[in-house]
Amino acid sequence: LPLEERVTHFRDMLLERGVSAFSTWEKELHKIVFDPRYLLLNSEERKQIFEQFVKTR
């Protein structure tokens, strides 16, 4: 999958899993780590997309 598509899937997962915009990566990790979409991005990309996600929520 192209990166753009993987990012979209990852963001959808964050929304569906009820990730809080007022929380930290560490506190929200347990909600998403077992979702197959979690593995679409490498660890650096995951954290970066998470940070963007919480800023725009």
Results as ranks from 00 to 15, higher is better:
L1R: 11
L1M: 03
P2N: 15
P2I: 14
L3H: 15
L3T: 12
L3F: 13
L3V: 15
L3S: 03
E4K: 14
E4N: 14
E4W: 06
E4G: 04
E4F: 09
E4H: 13
E5S: 08
E5A: 02
E5C: 09
E5I: 12
E5T: 05
E5D: 08
E5F: 07
R6V: 03
R6N: 07
R6E: 00
V7Q: 13
V7H: 09
V7S: 09
V7W: 05
V7D: 11
V7L: 12
T8Y: 05
T8G: 09
T8I: 08
T8C: 08
T8M: 08
T8E: 07
T8H: 08
H9I: 15
H9N: 13
H9G: 05
H9E: 10
H9M: 15
F10V: 00
F10C: 00
F10P: 10
F10H: 13
F10S: 00
F10W: 06
F10M: 02
R11E: 07
R11H: 11
R11I: 15
R11K: 11
D12L: 07
D12F: 04
D12C: 05
D12E: 15
D12P: 01
D12W: 12
M13I: 04
M13D: 01
M13Q: 06
L14Y: 08
L14A: 03
L14N: 00
L14E: 03
L15R: 14
L15W: 08
L15Q: 15
E16T: 01
E16V: 04
E16Y: 01
E16A: 07
E16H: 01
R17Q: 10
R17L: 09
R17F: 08
G18T: 14
G18P: 12
G18D: 10
G18W: 02
V19E: 01
V19D: 04
S20F: 06
S20G: 10
S20N: 15
A21E: 11
A21Q: 10
A21L: 05
A21C: 11
A21G: 09
A21N: 12
F22P: 07
F22E: 13
S23P: 13
S23G: 09
T24Y: 10
T24C: 14
T24M: 05
T24N: 09
W25R: 06
W25N: 05
W25Y: 14
W25I: 08
W25C: 08
W25M: 11
W25L: 02
E26G: 04
E26L: 05
E26F: 04
E26H: 15
E26S: 04
E26P: 10
E26M: 12
K27D: 14
K27A: 14
K27T: 03
K27E: 11
K27M: 01
K27G: 09
E28Y: 00
E28L: 07
L29F: 11
L29S: 07
L29Q: 14
L29C: 08
L29E: 14
L29T: 10
L29R: 14
L29N: 12
H30D: 10
H30K: 08
H30A: 03
H30Q: 07
H30W: 12
K31Y: 01
K31L: 02
K31T: 02
I32R: 06
I32E: 04
I32H: 09
I32W: 06
I32Q: 04
V33A: 12
V33C: 06
V33S: 13
V33L: 07
F34G: 14
F34A: 13
F34P: 06
F34H: 14
F34T: 14
D35R: 07
D35S: 00
D35M: 03
P36W: 13
P36E: 08
P36T: 05
P36F: 07
P36K: 13
P36V: 03
R37W: 02
R37Y: 08
R37V: 05
Y38F: 12
Y38A: 01
Y38P: 04
L39G: 15
L40G: 09
L41T: 05
L41F: 05
L41G: 05
N42R: 11
N42F: 04
S43K: 12
S43M: 12
S43D: 06
S43R: 11
E44L: 11
E44K: 14
E44F: 11
E44M: 15
E45M: 12
E45V: 01
E45N: 14
E45Q: 13
R46D: 09
R46L: 03
R46S: 04
R46A: 12
R46H: 05
R46W: 13
K47L: 10
K47C: 11
K47P: 02
K47G: 09
K47E: 05
Q48C: 10
Q48P: 05
Q48R: 11
Q48V: 12
Q48K: 09
Q48A: 12
Q48D: 15
Q48I: 11
I49D: 15
I49P: 01
I49A: 06
I49M: 05
I49F: 07
F50W: 11
F50K: 01
E51H: 12
E51P: 00
E51W: 02
E51V: 03
E51T: 10
Q52F: 00
Q52Y: 02
Q52C: 08
F53R: 01
F53W: 12
F53M: 00
F53G: 08
F53K: 02
F53H: 07
V54Q: 07
V54A: 07
V54G: 04
V54C: 09
V54P: 01
V54L: 06
V54N: 06
K55L: 12
K55A: 10
K55Y: 03
K55V: 09
K55Q: 11
K55H: 11
T56Y: 06
T56R: 07
T56W: 07
